[in-house]
Design a protein around this nucleic acid. Sequence first.
RNA 1: GCCCAUGUGGCGGAAUUGGUAGACGCAGCAGACUCAAAAUCUGCCGUUCGCAAGGGCGUGAAGGUUCGAUUCCUUUCGUGGGCACCA
Length: 1099
Amino acid sequence: MGNIQSLMEYDFRKIETYWQKRWKEDRVYAVSNESSKPKHYVLDMFPYPSGAGLHVGHPLGYIASDIYSRYKRLKGYNVLHPMGFDSFGLPAEQYALETGQHPAETTKKNIATFKRQLDKIGFCYDWSREVQTSDPRYYKWTQWIFLQLFNSYFCNTQQKARPISDLVKKYETTGSKHFTAEEWKGFSEKEKGDWLMKRRLAFSAYGEVNWCEALGTVLANDEVVNGVSERGGFPVEKRKMRQWFLRITAYADRLLEGLEKVDFSDAMKEMQKNWIGRSEGAEIEFAVGDSQSAVSEVPLKLRVYTTRPDTIFGVDFMVIAPEHELVEQITTTEQKEAIDKYLAYVKSRSDRERQAETKTITGCFTGAYAVNPFDGRAIPIWTAEYVLAGYGTGAIMAVPCGDQRDFLFAKHFGIPITNIIGGHYNGDEANPTKEAVLENSGFLNGLLMKDAIGIAVNKIEEMGIGKRKVNYKMRDAGFSRQRYWGEPFPIIWNDGIAIPLDAEELPLELPHVDKYGPGPEGEGPLANLKEWVYLTTDSFKHTSGAVEHSVDLTPNPSPKERGMKEHPGYMNSTVEEWKKTIAFARQNRKEPTEAEAIMWSELRNRKIKDFKFRRQHPVAGYIPDFICLEKSLIVEIDGEYHNQEEQRKFDQGREAWLLENGFTMIRFSNQEVLGDINSVLITIEYALLQDESRPGTGSHSPLPWRGAGGEVKRETSTMPGYAGSSWYFLRFMDPNNTETFCDRKISDYWNQVDLYVGGTEHAVGHLLYSRMWTKVMFDLGLISFDEPFRKLLNQGMIQGSSRFVYRLKDDINRFVSFGLKEKYDAVDIHVDVNLVDGVELNMEEFRKWKPEFAEAEFILEDGKYICGSEVEKMSKSKYNTVNPDELCNKYGADTFRMYEMFLGPVEQSKPWDTKGIEGVHRFLRKLWRLFFDEVKGKIWTEDKATDAELKILHRTIKKIEEDTERFSFNTAVSSFMICVNDLADLKCHKREVLEKLLILLTPYAPHIAEELWQHLGNTGTVLDSKYPVYDPLLLVESTKEYPVSINGKLRTTINLSLDLDQQQVEGSVLQNEVVQKWLEGKTPKKIIYVKGKMVNVVI
RNA sequence: GCCCAUGUGGCGGAAUUGGUAGACGCAGCAGACUCAAAAUCUGCCGUUCGCAAGGGCGUGAAGGUUCGAUUCCUUUCGUGGGCACCA
């Protein structure tokens, strides 16, 4: 391994390349699912592989988790530390819109770049477990889990998810509060579907979206700025569209309770609690009239939610959300025009704007009044943007003396304010107290507000005008996106009834598209693929006219002994009949013949030239034994009954129909398959490759003519980014399983993620969703734990430190230095931070950077061009990104890893500054010199270590272990530096000390540690060694240099034995010169002595 | 606006339960080695008054609790993150 000459210097490039290759070859990071060691699961939040590649901000958390994983491994754990990619998402689609490159292509490229960059830093990922959410082998299971959500409901009695079939049974036997069992049985399919949809955990309903007419698409809140689209500046308005949702609100209480048993930071728990926003209060109904006196003829009710029913007598007006359906119904003719104008204004405002702007108060009177049920007072009903439709009932009762927002509103519009809290209200601002004694409050007069809350609710319930209610700020999670690059929903709409695909039909692969624009009605791009979307013959004909067929060609049903002979025609089969077909197919799968079983083991999992086969997969009413949809090739295995005359006739009819509809069929007999499977396979392979031009039905499941009668079409939305990332931690445990999302035994073994590392930006999105999914899967008995992440470590963001040059407005080739810019009229321009040393611009490089700067001239200060600087998000567009590759090339991965950690606490955000990396690099070189001398070569010795040397070592072992355990990696790096400095001072080159130090260092700087470990003559990787144990006896001190303060101010120090008692200490302290000087002859009032800490003399 | 985090030398930061503020590193200054450079090593390095000894001030700001506060409490300002279709 190299000659002595090359060993004298720390040649990190050679060392790191060598070991990265060796580790890969030796598969040292492969993790087994079976081990006698205790398990530990360390996970990083899924990266999105952006086109910009990795910048120095990304690896911060990855380095931290890598250090921890290696540390745990040295401590004797079986450590799972995988990495994969959250590869569906909007940026790739956006990029496709701009450049026409397919997201699959760009995503593939980006992932390759990410992996190359990650490997350069020397992470210990088990790449054999890599998963990508956009891989059909992965999203097959995302879709499968979605179907579990779809097929489940939240049982309020048991407070858990249960199969929807249980609910159906209940409806069939006992009905519900809305209908009797008899009524249920009489419902149409559509009615039944609608009722069930109200309970499913994944359900479809109408939801509001930001609609941009000009772009014909739905926009994210981010993409809407000041009511217009960020791209193009087109107007945006709220619009209702059919969407999928996850019923996360059903889990609100359990998500709150679950926080008790996880180790997240208080801040994180706080954010989740606030997001869920549980409040207890009452829902109250008010009668509505259209004038101050008369209640309208049609009895309208206004329902409001309030947490303060005790203030009911202080209600001076009502506010309903502008979207509220009542607005239209109650607005009086006089107010109609004003209201219409106001609604138009509100439509253009985003939710965030509506809440953020409290300075400008807007609102409009509807002309209608509500009636206070207790004193009959008429209360004017207003609508205002500060009340959002999604919260509570979308209506509030306003109590200006107790709520500041209501107060300001009342003042602004001159609504008289009723004071119900006497002296607690001063007329200048509202007072939200619960401690006041109520006045002007009818039956509540004289009560303390907090006592009145319960009494008021009781009365309201008694009167039947309202009820106690727990409310959540959290809304059900929108789960569909009108986008292309995401998981397709395994759902077919048949006359408005959502029909799930069968599990065997998954994955429903995302079809290829060439255009990424929105569909005709603002749907996702998939809506443009007519032949993919429409599944009925009729609708197919309407849209493309491509397929003609006659009802006479209706094929024979499945073999008669399977009981399908009497089955009616498929073309017009009802949903019920179709379900029956599916059931038959499922049954068939469970009972394969011997030949079928053999054939399936050969065809499944893309064993033939990567062609995907399905078995017993219905095509119309016909269920082929095996089918390759991509090639429309059917493989049949015929048993004895095919020799019967009648059956042969059926077969022929069926085959003719299939051929006419573009399918090919090969038939084998049982004997052929059992006798010579190889030649059978060759025949199939030949057929697959033979006709390249065959159009096929695409790789997706065609499911033609499912159901019938009206429009039968696929769901064209796709799932959002968090679908794939809500359960990926489970897939890493068993990434290649084709039978299930994750084998139960394996998920029982790995269990929860022990350490989850990622940014706080995921606090309420991803983390809540994956917690919910985990709970559902737990309820359904799919896994054995109901919280995914046991401990969470938040990683701060590394910000960019941007640099600016200042270009004169009137002379675009002249640039003025930062200190002089005030004297000129100049504009700031981002300059690439890599062209700047600190703040000093490299002018030569700058001229070369862009052609427009080639002729640049500079106005200097002190002969230098000084740049301005600002801390911003690290982003390519701001030219402030720093690429980890370059740093690894220049200083090595070990230096880079340690420097990232040395920057400060992982949890904290900080701007990146490459300066300072030198110091860490110097440390590693200094370490190297403990082993090798420039002239003498190797210099380590086998001598016995002295007490002083052992003390340094053991102090370091203790410190590094403690710091690593509490994720204080920056102080650990400092401790390494101190240790090496101390050992160098003592000229300690003893193997006894150095070898242990290398093990400590392995998690932080794996390459250099491994290299030196091997030089010391060890075989096998240092990762398999045992973590040293520190000996407390070596660290015992007998004396301490005590700080002595007078009145809390440090004046001197005294060296004292550690086992002195208070009296002895007082004696020594009082004799001290400095203390006597400060005492000026007085007697101290008190002497405080904290053993081992300090002494304070109080005068 | 609401929720969360955060603020310490020229810079990144340390001070683990309220107990010696500024560890460690960068930058800077002075020196050694060298023909020179690099590398390495040694010393200084919050601020202010003072020849020195020694003292004053100092953890965003103001107030409080305490023998003692960077640490706890109240108020306030600045910065960063999130606010439901970016991931």
